[in-house]
Nucleic acid binder design. Structure first.
Lengths: 158, 158
DNA sequence: AGCGATTATATTGTATGCAATGAAATGGGT
DNA sequence: ACCCATTTCATTGCATACAATATAATCGCT
């Protein structure tokens, strides 16, 4: 009986939450986004809006497709999000004159000003997370390695 | 002029996407959930429904709060999700007689049968991800270390 | 027994995410 | 110039997530 139990447990052991890599990844990502909330609330931004602003602060002018490639998001997510950022006055949306299909996104002075408030956020988050710097570095390397593999796989599918 | 540019870049460097740990974490988690989709579609499960079934396959009988603690989810997410799993016939929802506040969730024979189909999924995913086993192990360790820190922090807030 | 505090779910509102589809603009080949 | 394939964005439908609030049941204290 005991032996049967063991055999039976073996059979399903791969389905245990603690034997999966995907679960801590999923849970960590949620926890991080949740932890950002109080800091981003001061800027009137959600996490996704925040990372969208981050790429725009760097590039100043991008179309929706380019933003989506940076953030791994599609138009179904970005279209309403960008409209919201426009409502808040942080960005402008306007069609390209050379190619009317392109919706160009650019930062407003208000959006640029927000950047000065946002610089405090990464430091506050780091302090709040209190993650060992070496661990953070390893995690960073491993996650990007993983992400590159995903990218490759996606390109193959095309 | 060049010097000013460098100074100006320095000021905002912490806001660059590639200098953040949160972003690859967020992106990886999304990619993994997306990668699960084709395999889980065969079982008529979404990713969240899948991990919910995983804890139930182990514990057989749990209330909503316990499931939420395992998965870091609250009733706002779980209530509709559990109703859907009930509709699909994989679980039963019934109030505890000792304490009517508790909604007990248990697996149906159909839900139990699904487990035999699900055992194939982790292997298929592993093959699909093609992640170096050592990297997977490091990632696992680091993510749980991180998750434990989050857990601690949450407990402090109470 | 009575009642205020606590606990467990449910509900509501807001914001993602993504697949699938639609619509408009552009490009390429004839 | 014309037509068809491609590209870019928008829309729709479905499924999460989570904060805030509501509701019902139970507990603790007197």
């Amino acid at each position: 009986m005991d032996k049967e139990m063991n055999v039976s447990q073996e059979k399903y052991s791969c389905l245990r939450l603690e034997n999966q890599l995907c679960f801590p990844l999923y849970a960590c990502a949620k926890e991080v986004v949740r932890s950002y909330k109080p800091f981003l609330a001061r800027l009137d931004l959600t996490y996704t809006q925040y990372i969208t602003m981050m790429v725009l602060w760097e590039r100043k002018q991008m179309n929706v497709k380019e933003i989506g490639e940076c953030l791994y998001l599609d138009s179904g997510t970005l279209t309403p999000l960008l409209k919201k950022l426009e409502q808040k006055g942080f960005i402008r949306r306007h069609r390209s004159k050379e190619d009317e299909r392109n919706l160009l996104i650019s930062i407003t002075p208000e959006g640029e000003a927000l950047r000065d408030e946002a610089v405090a956020v990464p430091g506050e988050m780091k302090a709040c997370m209190s993650l060992d710097p070496e661990d953070a570095a390893s995690l960073y390397t491993l996650l990007y390695k993983f992400l590159d593999k995903c990218q490759e796989r996606r390109n193959l599918d095309k």
